[in-house]
Amino acid sequence: MTKQLSSFAGKFFLSILVIAFLASTVAAQAADVKLDLQLIWGTNDADSPNPQHKRIEQKFPFKWKNYFEVNRQQVSVAPKAMKAVIMSPHCSVNVSNLADGRIEVKLLGKGKKVRTEIHPLASGMLVIGGDATNDTSWFVVVKEVKP
């Protein structure tokens, strides 16, 4: 009888723990997501023709030698909400918090949709970009700002 009771108590506490864990996970996923967005230009040139562009030291797995930050924005997105972030006069990003640990990133160029990506935050930062003229590149980096 005692053995049965202790077995029941064990299962009960285990269930409580699992429920608590799931609840905390759901709570965490249902919270606002704070994101850091950067528009970056990759080039082999030592300097950017625009002095307002800030050189960045972060390494990317691409061939370009230098990277310049064209714009940087931080936004907080509520669960199930979407925020439009303007990165340049012709480039904007719509980010939605899917409230399940993922975000939807919609990249727009001149108001036209270029790419939509659903991204699990746990997998790290998201980079969307492409080659540009004169052997350069551009890309948008989206990463979560952890509290």
Binding site: P61, M125, G129, G130, D131, A132, S137, W138
Partner: peptide, 20 residues
């Protein structure tokens, strides 16, 4: 890092040069 690279050069170039 997850990288999504847009491969169509003509369109990407248009977007990029206009965007930056």
């Amino acid at each position: 890092m997850t990288v999504v690279w847009l491969a169509d050069n003509s369109a990407a170039t248009e977007v990029s040069s206009e965007a930056i």
